[in-house]
């Protein structure tokens, strides 16, 4: 089932006193299926946040449609959705548990106090529940942002730059948390600049450039398509000169590597090595990273 379905989405920003119009999003199409972790990528100003804000009802589309769970009423959909905005800010006069209590009351159902404490424990803020938000560090603000998004046990989590501004430990912990949440069957839509994180978390990605979806697909399929070269690790071959015509030869102690970008040469050299009494330890295709894909898409 499709949780989010976006068709021909256009968002125009215009000022009442200026004639100039700016396209935030320009004819965007995308969908997110149930249980997916979808990563929205794009350079600054590409329209990622605009798309997320339209989905959460914070912005209205100029044209096109956004359907949640097949056209569910927005208020009902919001009950099943949790949103973490980019660089979130919260009421500074409240402490951790008071903040969650406040947000939980914005849902029609009663959330038990233990449930809120569990959420705070999940995001690693259990010991800071009585600390004022005004004394929280950036990392803690991000964690409490995750916590408020988890209220109401949402089926869909929308996270805008969830790992920005965090130290490596914080990033690792929250990355693990996202993966844990996803493994419990929840759908996640996130935007991020940190491509290595997206590569580690998401199973599907979309690259937005100037408000348009330039590339969309499963991560493994996108990465599979472009094998740049293959590294073959071999041993047991004494005379190695003949190997040079099949690729670049590199020796690291007892181990020899051949790097080839030709599939025919790769198959042929593997066959010859075994025939000459050597052994192939590993064959590792080197694919383009998501970052390289991203850069290629941006400059295409």
């Amino acid at each position: 089932m499709k949780v989010i379905e976006i068709k021909n989405l256009v968002k125009i920003y215009s000022s009442p006193f200026m004639r100039r119009k700016t396209f935030g999003v320009n004819g965007l199409n995308m969908d997110v299926a149930e249980g997916e972790t979808f990563g929205l990528l794009g350079p600054n100003g590409a329209g990622k946040t605009t798309v997320l804000k339209i989905i959460t009802g914070l912005l209205k589309p100029s044209s096109g449609s956004v359907m949640l769970w097949g056209g569910m009423d927005m208020i009902l959909a919001k009950k099943r959705m949790g949103f973490l905005p980019e660089n979130p800010t919260f009421y500074r006069h409240l402490n951790g548990i008071e903040l969650l209590r406040f947000y939980s009351r914005l849902y029609d159902r009663n959330t038990k106090e233990e449930e809120l404490e569990e959420i705070l424990e999940l995001v690693g803020l259990k010991k800071d529940i009585y600390r004022r938000i005004s004394t929280y560090s950036k990392g803690m603000i991000q964690r409490i942002g995750f916590a408020q998004a988890f209220i109401g046990d949402p089926d869909l989590l929308i996270l805008d730059e969830p790992l920005s501004g965090l130290d490596p430990i914080g990033r690792k912990e929250l990355k693990d948390l996202i993966q844990k949440v996803n493994s419990s069957g929840k759908t996640i839509l996130l935007s991020s600049h940190i491509l290595s994180d997206v590569e580690a978390i998401c199973n599907r990605v979309g690259i937005i450039i100037e408000g348009k979806m330039k590339k969309i697909g499963y991560l493994r399929e996108i990465l599979k398509t472009d094998i740049r070269y293959t590294d073959i690790e071999i041993e047991g071959i004494k005379k190695k000169e003949w190997l040079k015509k099949y690729g670049n030869l590199r020796e690291e102690g007892e181990v020899t590597y051949i790097r080839t970008s030709d599939e025919e040469k790769r198959d042929k050299v593997i066959k010859l090595i075994t025939e000459k009494g050597g052994s192939v330890i590993s064959v590792v295709p080197q694919r383009m990273s998501l970052e390289e894909h991203f850069m290629k898409t941006v400059y295409e």
Partner: peptide, 14 residues
């Protein structure tokens, strides 16, 4: 201005 509105209006609040 303080953007506290984002986490309120993304909840089921009319």
């Amino acid at each position: 201005e303080r953007k506290t509105i984002y986490s309120i209006m993304s909840k089921p609040v009319r």
